[in-house]
Design a protein around this nucleic acid. Structure first.
Ligand SMILES: NC(=O)c1ccc[n+]([C@@H]2O[C@H](COP(=O)([O-])OP(=O)(O)OC[C@H]3O[C@@H](n4cnc5c(N)ncnc54)[C@H](O)[C@@H]3O)[C@@H](O)[C@H]2O)c1
Ligand SMILES: NC(=O)c1ccc[n+]([C@@H]2O[C@H](COP(=O)([O-])OP(=O)(O)OC[C@H]3O[C@@H](n4cnc5c(N)ncnc54)[C@H](O)[C@@H]3O)[C@@H](O)[C@H]2O)c1
Lengths: 222, 222
DNA sequence: CTGACTTCGAGAAAACGATCACAAGCTCGG
DNA sequence: CCGAGCTTGTGATCGTTTTCTCGAAGTCAG
């Protein structure tokens, strides 16, 4: 399963690869063909040594005295993150947030496509949101199989999030992005990442009280 | 500014306090008056020793042989995170996502209130969203001053995010939550936290390719 | 070709965070 | 009042991440 055994990439590094990818995309659009770790670091808002170490986990792609070839690096990161693949996603819970996500054209990263919507509310089922028909929650298994769903996005109220997760896991989905608050319990072989507005605001509150500042975070490992 | 000098709370701990807070809220609702670090850890999905160490940074609130008083702990965490205060927020960019956020009643954490909406699109200005009138981007400074805005939430397209941030900073806002992709540049004394869907999906993609799993992350420090 | 200059790659050190392990301190039954 | 039984709080340890530093390896002008 592991593409290249022996190369274990630290979680902190994995979390930064998407950031580098975006910065490199910008550079590519600006017709920059080569970029130094210093410049990349500046644009990404991180330390240059960190950039070099992160990239070194992928291989030795740089040229000393010159820097990294933007296109080549883009390609390597894309391959590492699976951006060259297709990732069909399902949104569970088509409310306020679920609908906004479904309508959001431009996940930035290619490959991620919302191909199905599921909701438990009978009034919602059958409606069309973002050109997709909302399916019943009971159909989740069928839908996941039919659409070969790789990633489940949970946008239900907190109380229903565990049900949604159970449904996804039961349908064979092994990657979940959870917008509901609370902790999900899933089997060991399922990855869950959480996006929590309340948490973010509370962290901001803490640092504002302290008069201190917290850097531009991304998301975190284990 | 620092509430209690000498107590420096690690960023990793700060990021977990909101999680503990939510778990404690659940316990309180279930009429549980006392909770052990073991139980709290289980509910939060973390290690018990970590819970104890985290809480020990706030003070010695536990009772050996018994555990922690739920209400007291809730109060202490709330105080530490500033949840006892009022945090007026402004949303900049009332599109798909901005509108969903504005309509979202239940930030979970109390104190955070969306009190103003701002958009650059003349067609949006004057509209009412979630009982609030959308104001012009040019009015951002005025609005922030009038409403004593503490936190700015950026939900504009990526290209406008830096403008939005500059406007907020210029208006004296020192805490920013950014939903747009890309890196914001702000003065040292301003805290920025980023929520990025694309990043999260890409991280999930990586681990799915690897067949490995990543734990339920929250958000991250520096 | 040479030398000045640039930049990577990686070893080593420092900082940070997670976990272990256990003494100290509390409750409670008898 | 005592001893058994829990659970906290924290020093010690370990693994991870960040940062520093510098030799190696490249470019390029002349
Ligand atoms: N709206 C926001 O801006 C926002 C922001 C951050 C986080 N969130 C979180 O996202 C989640 C959704 O928020 P929302 O505002 O969209 O809520 P919402 O009430 O508008 O939508 C929830 C939807 O989930 C559906 N649902 C309920 N139970 C379900 C189940 N078992 N299976 C499938 N669907 C089910 C409901 O029918 C409804 O359509 C919440 O957990 C909220 O905390 C929302
Ligand atoms: N919609 C989603 O589900 C979603 C999910 C994740 C991230 N995002 C990100 O959130 C941001 C907003 O997404 P969206 O789907 O709501 O986009 P949108 O186009 O629907 O809304 C953007 C709004 O910002 C306004 N705007 C543009 N420039 C502005 C400026 N300088 N000042 C103030 N307002 C301005 C526009 O008039 C528009 O109303 C994007 O950066 C997107 O990447 C969106």
């Amino acid at each position: 399963m592991t593409p290249d055994p022996g190369r274990r990439i630290p979680e902190a590094t994995v979390a930064r690869l998407p950031l580098y990818y975006r910065v490199l995309l910008e550079s590519a659009e600006a017709r920059v063909s080569t970029i130094s770790s210093d410049r990349l670091a500046e644009m990404a808002g991180v330390n240059a040594a960190k950039v070099r170490k992160d990239l070194s986990y992928l291989g030795s792609f740089g040229t000393r005295g010159v820097g990294y070839d933007v296109d080549y690096l883009l390609h390597e990161i894309a391959r590492e993150l699976g951006l060259t693949q297709d990732w069909p996603c399902v949104i569970v819970g088509v409310g306020n947030l679920g609908a906004a996500l479904a309508n959001y054209r431009g996940f930035g990263a290619r490959g991620f496509r919302v191909v199905a919507l599921v909701d438990a509310d009978p009034a919602k089922v059958g409606q069309t949101v973002a050109d997709l028909r909302v399916e019943a929650f009971a159909e989740l298994g069928t839908v996941c199989a039919r659409e070969r769903i790789a990633i489940g996005i949970i946008a239900t109220p907190a109380g229903a999030a565990q049900d949604a997760a159970d449904g996804l896991v039961g349908a064979g989905v092994r990657s979940v992005l959870n917008f509901a608050s609370g902790v999900l319990s899933v089997p060991d072989d399922v990855s869950v990442r959480k996006v929590d507005l309340a948490t973010e605001l509370q962290i901001l509150g803490f640092y504002q009280l302290r008069g201190a500042n917290t850097a531009l975070n991304t998301s975190r490992p284990a």
